[in-house]
Structures are given as structure tokens and as C-alpha cells.
């Protein structure tokens, strides 16, 4: 069982709902465990929102997403034409040990993604960001 799904979304927050619907449908067709549906949604939302919120100063832009569901793993590729941003390196690790009143609000998204994937690669090419991730089907 395997399937490759290509999605092109615009840099608007409401496109996240469409991604969630498509990911859930793919997960159903490919009989993903619920944990994988959750992980795929989280990866796409956290990285997608970063691009949508911070990638461009203005204008309508396309973000390309390719999901490749294989029996043992799921790979995800995200390509955008926004500002150079390497989520494998550029985002600082959030403070995870500070007491409640000193805990900074935010900065968690990329950290969650890093913790959930088995491979996380980035390259900048032809003015575009390319992110590739692999997560095992069962953890």
C-alpha cells in the first residue's frame, strides 16, 4: 500500500483546514494509525503556519506539499518561495525547564516537529526553501 499526494496551497491561514481534511482522507485510505494522522497534521500545520505567517512580506504565494505514504514510513516535502528559513537550524530551542511564571509563550512549533521526525533536511535552491521530513509509520 502506498500513495503520493500533491497539494498546492496559498499562503493564507484558512488553507490549513484544507490540508487537515486532505491528510485525514489520505490517512484513512492508507490505514494510518491515529498517532500518524496526528503527527502529519502537526508537522504540516507548524511548518505551514511559519511560512504563511512569516515567509513573505506581501502578495499571494503558493506552497507545494508532497506526501508520500509508504508501508513503513511517511515522507513529507514542503517547498515555498518565501524568505530563506532553515527550520532544522534557524529556530532556537525553546526553554523547556523554566518555571511557569518565566516560561516564554511560543517558540514550540518547530521544536515539536524536530522531536517527532526521524529525518529532517533543508536546502535553499533557486530562491526557494525545500524541506524534507521522514517519520516512521509506527513509533
Amino acid at each position: 500500500m502506498s500513495e503520493t499526494l500533491k497539494l498546492t496551497i496559498l499562503n493564507r491561514q484558512d488553507e490549513l483546514n484544507r490540508i487537515a481534511t486532505e491528510v485525514e482522507a489520505l490517512g484513512e485510505r492508507e490505514e494510518w494509525p491515529p498517532e500518524l494522522v496526528f503527527r502529519a497534521n502537526l508537522i504540516l500545520e507548524e511548518l505551514g503556519l511559519n511560512i504563511i505567517n512569516y515567509g513573505h512580506d506581501e502578495g499571494v504565494h503558493e506552497i507545494e506539499i508532497v506526501l508520500n505514504s509508504e508501508p513503513e514510513f511517511l515522507s513529507i516535502e514542503i517547498t515555498d518561495d518565501g524568505k530563506a528559513f532553515d527550520p532544522t537550524e534557524d529556530a532556537p530551542d525553546p526553554s523547556l525547564t523554566a518555571p511557569l511564571d518565566e516560561r516564554p509563550i511560543g517558540g514550540l512549533g518547530v521544536h515539536l516537529v524536530r522531536s517527532m521526525v526521524d529525518e529532517f533536511r533543508y536546502k535553499r535552491e533557486d530562491g526557494r526553501n525545500h524541506v524534507a521530513l521522514v517519520t516512521r509509520r509506527d513509533k
Partner: peptide
């Protein structure tokens, strides 16, 4: 069924407010 960092952020804000 699902929560992302945007939702975790809200829970942290609520936890801080209640602690105060």
C-alpha cells in the same frame, strides 16, 4: 482530538493567569 503549538500556547497563558 488535536492540538498544535498554537493551542499549547493558550494553555500556558491560562496556566499563568490562574497561577497569578
Amino acid at each position: 482530538t488535536y492540538i498544535s503549538s498554537a493551542g499549547l500556547r493558550v494553555i500556558l497563558l491560562i496556566a499563568k493567569a490562574l497561577e497569578r
